[in-house]
Design a protein around this nucleic acid. Structure first.
Lengths: 170, 170
DNA sequence: TATTGTTATACTCTATAACTATA
DNA sequence: TATAGTTATAGAGTATAACAATA
């Protein structure tokens, strides 16, 4: 069996006690579970979750400033510098310095970066439509809706898969 | 302003595109947000989230085997060895080797460990009852319920704060 | 003075494999 | 042979502070 098993059988009879009702604890385990599914299903694409989110965010917000990207993704600016440099070295992103504030850096996808995003979009959306574990469509939609509310992230009506069931729950 | 700001204003006008509907992405940001609240509110207690969960889990499951603890918390066994050693050095945990399988290790809280848990329980429960950001009581309860379903964690009727509203949702 | 991004450093966590002692 | 835990090592992510350029 793989190390750290129990990805599917879960709790092994352990009682979680007060942690059962801890939002932080549940979010932590949920994130680990989701990332494990990510690696199992699309890890072979060779793009890690952090890089994936940077690619999609720059694609969606051409010219976004590096610091805005960092704080949106809650990645420290020092770390963002390294990530962007690696992606620049890989030819996926390029950087420009705007005339009106020459301290800052604006980020754009290169043609290769756009091609990579186009290439990734299908598998990623397919993965997202599967990656709901034991939850049915409606539960998954509601979970996402609650997480967006918790995070103050808009529902993005221009986004994908606008399942009408999502609106009906209370 | 602190580095990585935007903890409360959130998105800074960035459009998240397909990430808006990515469970893994939302869980990742949710976990970071919850941990930030944890450090802001009870970080001064000097116990990190991982240590906290080990303490509470051993308290709730005296004699739990180290490997079971590791897979329950999705912590690698190699890392769990170090965590347990540090907690042993701190006098919070002690280890026994059961006669029926002398490869394994059972974990118990020391008197000091139990005292620490008793000391932490109040602040932690108080934090959990606050740590819901913009969600009201009912939304938070439902979010936790969906996360438990996603993770296949039982509702633990012997647990704390059994809010009757939690049962009413669709 | 404050802000943006960079560099450097240290630490935590993760991933992996080899090792022991038991089974 | 397989399993539980340990050790060692490398890498990714994070936290922090000091710095240069610009505002």
């Amino acid at each position: 069996m793989r190390d750290g098993g129990g990805s599917d059988d879960g709790t092994l009879g352990v009682r979680f006690g007060p942690l059962t009702d801890s939002l932080g604890f549940l979010l932590r385990l949920g994130q680990l579970s989701a990332f494990e599914a990510y690696y199992d299903e699309i890890g072979a694409l060779g793009v890690r979750p952090g890089e994936m989110s940077v690619l999609f965010l720059v694609a969606e917000n051409p010219g976004v400033r590096q610091g805005v990207l960092a704080s949106s993704l809650r990645i420290k600016r020092a770390h963002m510098t390294k990530m962007i440099r690696a992606m620049e070295d890989a030819g996926l992103v390029h950087r420009t310095v705007p005339e009106d504030d020459r301290r800052s850096v604006e980020l754009w996808l290169t043609a290769a970066g756009r091609a990579r995003v186009a290439e990734l979009t299908g598998p990623v959306l397919a993965h997202e439509s599967r990656a709901q574990g034991r939850l049915d469509q409606r539960e998954a939609a509601q979970l996402k809706r609650l997480l967006r509310a918790y995070l103050n992230i808009p529902e993005d009506p221009s986004g994908p898969g606008h399942d009408p069931l999502e609106e009906s729950g209370s």
